[in-house]
Design a protein around this nucleic acid. Structure first.
Lengths: 196, 196
DNA sequence: CGGCAGTTTGACCAACATCAAGTTGGGTGG
DNA sequence: CCACCCAACTTGATGTTGGTCAAACTGCCG
């Protein structure tokens, strides 16, 4: 778990997962890092979670010691990192609500809604009805992110397809005809949990 | 959800919960704040979660604006806050593993183990076999923290009692005869998830 | 044309939720 | 001091969601 990395960095391109694997093999993803997200655990040599590339990635890497001294000397950088960490904390807590209290169908709908929001942010375009995107995760990765099994993920995706809440050209390519309708199903009141 | 507080602060005595209530009433606790923990959301006027006192509490309160300017002018304070926030983030992620992948029994065992660790830290004593403590939460609060119902919480506590992993003098007073045995049941490999 | 990883679907099962009584214990008023 | 009350908790019977096991399907690569 969590190699002792001597590097910190940020994601430039692609997608990186953060996860924990329990002794008996159960796995839970605890975060999904998109371009501009910070990667690594400043101020602690052992990272408590595994960072795994989910697609091809380009990273920007700094040595831990150089980053930490730079951080120490640059209050503006430290402030920026604090802001990012506070946002990550809010995201993690939103995800706790999903894991603890949402149904399988709500979890899938939430994940699709969030993936669309993140991708729109990365592309720097507005999030409109009819957005299309390629899912960054396999069914197995989704299951581990959502606290489900791959079979349940697959079944609930089929349900959402049948209800016309999503359109899938193939297993990876998603279109959301009506974003607000999807949010409704996700169980988020109106403005839809502002997650990772 | 999350009143617009003009105050930030830290817990001096007692215990405060952070939670989200969904539109239909489902509730998920996303954090439990003990003495020395920070409370509030710096750099963002709206708190995204409700802070609710779980017991009688004493807080140390600062006005938001004064705290934020102090923060801006005091790199050491900012660094301390960054460290605390990074620790909270790790804790939140550990909790995600619990919510997403642990069984009801493992969740209860984890909660008891963590409560004992936190209480020992607050009391500044070592965590030894035979520790006793009064649970800070009702069964309902525990259920909302663990993503369960009160009935399941109650039943799994009964199971742990029958297996002599815990002793309960009454519904609130807990004794842990063998901490490592409890960690074993909690599903954490050996050193037992370092959670908030 | 296989072969294989990823996915889908079906039949069945188990864990946890729900619904419904009881039980306990501390607090109040007679 | 006792009787009652009520909230918190426990326990039992049954229901439902999501997990497990198993079999097929898809599309891509060699």
């Amino acid at each position: 778990m969590g190699e002792k990395t001597d590097f910190l960095g940020s994601v430039l391109e692609g997608c990186v997962s953060l996860s924990r694997i329990m002794a008996d093999g159960r796995r839970q993803m605890v975060g999904l890092l998109f371009p501009s997200d910070f990667i690594g655990r400043p101020m602690r040599p052992e990272a408590p979670f595994d960072a795994i590339a989910v697609s091809e990635v380009r990273l920007c890497i700094f040595s831990r010691s150089r980053f930490e001294s730079l951080l120490h000397d640059t209050p503006a950088l430290e402030q920026r990192l604090l802001e990012m960490t506070l946002d990550e904390l809010d995201s993690a807590r939103e995800w706790m609500v999903l894991l603890g209290r949402k149904t399988a169908k709500e979890k899938i709908a939430s994940f699709f809604a969030i993936a669309a929001r993140r991708l729109a942010a990365v592309r720097q375009v507005a999030l409109e009805d009819g957005v299309s995107l390629d899912l960054p995760l396999t069914r197995e990765d989704m299951a581990d992110y959502l606290g489900l099994t791959i079979e349940t993920v697959s079944r609930q995706i089929s349900v959402l397809k049948k209800e016309k809440l999503i359109i899938m050209r193939d297993a990876r390519h998603l279109t959301i005809p009506n974003y607000n309708a999807l949010l409704e199903v996700a169980g988020d009141d109106s403005d839809g949990g502002m997650i990772a």
